[in-house]
Write a protein that binds this DNA or RNA. Structure first.
Lengths: 123, 123
DNA sequence: CTAAATGCAAACTATTTGCAACGAT
DNA sequence: ATCGTTGCAAATAGTTTGCATTTAG
């Protein structure tokens, strides 16, 4: 059982660490041609709920699954939608102090234009 | 022209400042029964692109439209999905310094359980 | 034998879009 | 007359789900 869990984990790891469900499905299909989209989504959902991976929700593009589950922020290029991780030390504690609330976690997406897209210019 | 823009703005203002497209549509329908969902979505999109309102994308619930467009974070209750604003001074500048990049903006959603849901207990 | 996992297709949610009709200048 | 705006319905994107079947222990 959990036949495809490890496969999916390996695929995400082998990438930059951030992949859409569709990209994972296409990769998985190369190795296991009989795999169905539903299976990929189902496993991604279960793995997310189990805390093995993290789902990143962004504007204007499908959800991304992130191999690293520790708290960190995402730099998101507004043109190519590529994601880069970066961590801000003690942000969770800082938020906790600021709000006086019991924080469960945070999602921080920082918008910018990556260097590659910048060089390509406007358009 | 722009017949419904002001109506939509007023509806969001009259609320807590955060509403789903559907909730806006239902309110608008009370005042203008002939209004169509498509029109609401179209105007919300145009208003968002014009920077008059802000679209907040969250996990596990439809997008929310926010009357305040200045940079601020959202406290999101994981049970009732209610949103509260709170601002963190200089976060944008801070991110800029940390990354050394030209930041266009950020989306910060902080997960917690609001007091009302906490009192209701687990379930 | 059983229980979990899968493939398939249909269903679903949220949102967008094409188009003909409408409305204000 | 013109051009943006609307209502309607169909289309789309992304994801989830029901169910019969397969698979692994």
């Amino acid at each position: 059982m959990a036949k495809y869990r490890d496969l999916i984990l390996e695929i995400i790891k082998a990438s930059s660490g951030h992949m859409t469900a569709e990209a994972i499905y296409l990769e998985a299909k190369k190795l296991q041609p009989s795999i169905a989209v539903g299976t990929v989504y189902r496993n991604l959902r279960l793995m997310t709920e189990a805390g093995e991976i993290k789902r990143v929700v962004m504007a204007n593009s499908p959800d991304i699954f992130d191999i690293s589950t520790h708290p960190h922020a995402h730099l998101i290029c507004q043109k190519c939608h590529t994601i880069a991780d970066f961590s801000i030390s003690n942000l969770e504690e800082h938020l906790q102090k600021l709000t006086g609330l019991e924080i469960l976690g945070y999602d921080l997406n920082v918008r910018y234009i990556c260097n590659i897209c910048k060089k390509k210019g406007i358009g």
